[in-house]
């Protein structure tokens, strides 16, 4: 009985504070993460490091039951801009091998504020006004998908 309780307690701690199971709902990270895919959000990733460009992260809203899955494209102080679908960081085109779908976005330059990162989904085939992206506080980043 004690062994069962210990396993249950360990499982609770692991799935609550270390790796949160989640299911991808939506298409904003396609083709990297498909709608319906199952994954784990590793919460300890940034315990001793800071989020960097290229990382795919989970962004908290009111809680951790529903989060946004996005990719960091710029960090504080950097300038983000889109010209004819090409992403420019500090005026230089960023190499993005993970982008497989066509993109025609245009966005005037904007600077990432202190303690914030700029996140975008990998699926930029939808019109820019229908894609949820932008800068967010580092505090909202809860972890990274495990695979």
């Amino acid at each position: 009985m004690a062994r069962v309780l210990a396993v249950a307690l360990l499982a609770f701690i692991f799935f609550k504070f270390v790796c949160i199971p989640f299911r991808v709902k939506g298409y904003s990270m396609e083709p990297t993460y498909r709608n319906g895919g199952i994954n784990l959000c590793f919460k300890l990733k940034y315990l001793f490091s800071t989020p960097k460009r290229g990382d795919v992260v989970t962004v908290r809203l009111a809680g951790e039951k529903v989060m946004l899955l996005k990719r960091i494209v710029a960090t504080e102080g950097e300038t983000v801009e889109f010209i004819n679908g090409k992403l420019l960081i500090n005026g230089k085109k960023l190499d993005e091998p993970y982008i497989k779908l066509p993109c025609e976005w245009n966005l005037s330059p904007r600077k990432v504020e202190k303690n914030k990162v700029y996140v975008i989904g990998d699926n930029r085939s939808v019109p820019i006004e229908r894609h949820n992206f932008g800068q967010t506080s580092i505090k909202r980043i809860t972890g990274v998908p495990l695979w």
Binding site: K25, G26, Y27, L61, A62, G63, K65, V66, L68, N132
Partner: peptide, 23 residues
């Protein structure tokens, strides 16, 4: 109340919609 709201469905044009907001 701080909440996360999820709106998912289909537009009359046939497009899917899937939005998440904090309110």
């Amino acid at each position: 109340a701080e909440v996360t709201v999820r709106l998912s469905g289909k537009l009359t044009s046939g497009e899917r919609t899937d939005e998440t907001h904090e309110l």
